[in-house]
Simulated scan of single mutants.
Amino acid sequence: MTTTQKTVPKTETGYQPGPDGLLLEVDDLHVEFHTEDGVARAINGVNFSLHAGETLAILGESGSGKSVTAQAIMGILDMPPARIPQGEVRYCGHDLLTMAEDRRRRTRGPEISMIFQDALSSLNPVFPVGWQIAEMFRKHRGMNKSDSMAQAVRLMERVNIPGAKDRIKAYPHQFSGGMRQRIMIAMSIALDPAVLIADEPTTALDVTVQAQIMNLLAELQEERNMGLILITHDLGVVADVADRIAVMYSGRIMESADVYELYRKPAHPYTLGLLESIPRLDQKGQELSAIGGLPPNLLRLPSGCEFNPRCRFAQDICRRDRPELLPVAPDRLSACHFREEIYHG
């Protein structure tokens, strides 16, 4: 959760956050993919910011653009076929998209780090996990083998891997899914980043392990006062850990709000549909609702509002004019022509 009293993280590159702890600003970001069938517009004008100690959850169905946004921030999109035709990603006021590649590499890892959603495919199967963690210190800090391995043990202990000293030479396949995810977390925090992006960090884990991983991330954020971007499709995962939520659909942010306000009073039909599709203790025995239809083809986005083919509130204006992301209440934004009606019920 937001911690404004602490000192903001120091940055190795000499970049310093603003006086209010502002770390990251994404401004009018567009990402497109050039394919044989045409241009797929994956990100269409995304805007958000992140402060030290804050957790921003980016929420949406598969294909909404969450992971592409994260990859654009990290600078790990394959270009081509990807292209960023416009927008800025400012870290401590410096645009990452126009930064020289060598400086971008020094920012990636020590300053902005990422946990990927599939730990088994993200870890190298032919190297012991301790070696992979220690490599961060060898490459970025110039440590020798023994010192870097000692740091790897320390990090494995910090993320609660039992018998870290004995398991440092074990390989990824010798760990459970939850333990592999802890190793990924250890690698991502090794260099003390100011911004951590967690892309579906609890995918394919059972609910008990999910809770353990989310609690661990919350503890680490509190210790280090990191800015955390949590990417997920699961409303239940973010309820207890996020400060703000940005709801994405078809490459756009459809709604942005404080987490408690969004759950209490959604201001966009898509958010309303997502909330109606999850089980609730106070609605035992009631049939869950589902959002009809499928997300749009990014090669042929619908005219007007991208959500209009699936929206039960859609009218002619929705099929004709694309709504802007505009205020509906203090610290509340919604990209819907009928945001006032939906918000006020």
Rank of each mutant, 00 (worst) to 15 (best):
I168D: 08
R322F: 07
D321F: 07
L59N: 04
E88V: 06
M226E: 03
I76K: 01
F33S: 12
A72S: 15
P19F: 05
G45A: 13
S256L: 14
M248G: 05
E255A: 13
L281I: 13
T7L: 14
N47H: 15
T11Q: 15
D316S: 15
Q16H: 14
V89Q: 04
G60C: 05
N160W: 06
C318Q: 01
G273E: 10
V209S: 05
A246T: 03
V129I: 14
I197E: 05
N225H: 14
R320P: 05
E219M: 08
C311G: 05
G60V: 03
M254W: 07
G87S: 10
P162E: 12
G236F: 01
R244K: 12
H140S: 07
H30P: 00
I197T: 04
R322W: 03
I197R: 03
F127R: 08
L262D: 01
R339Y: 00
I231N: 08
F33I: 14
M149I: 11
D331F: 12
L56W: 06
T98P: 02
A70N: 05
A150C: 03
I115L: 07
K169C: 09
I84A: 04
K265G: 03
V68K: 10
S146K: 14
P201E: 01
R104Y: 06
A52L: 09
K6D: 13
D240C: 00
E135T: 08
V328Y: 11
D282H: 13
M156C: 05
A150Y: 00
Y171K: 09
Q212C: 02
A57T: 08
Q212F: 02
G236D: 01
L326W: 00
L29D: 09
I76F: 01
Q86T: 11
L299K: 12
T98V: 13
A186D: 01
P309N: 10
D78R: 13
A335W: 03
A329Y: 01
R141L: 15
L196T: 06
R83M: 03
I84S: 04
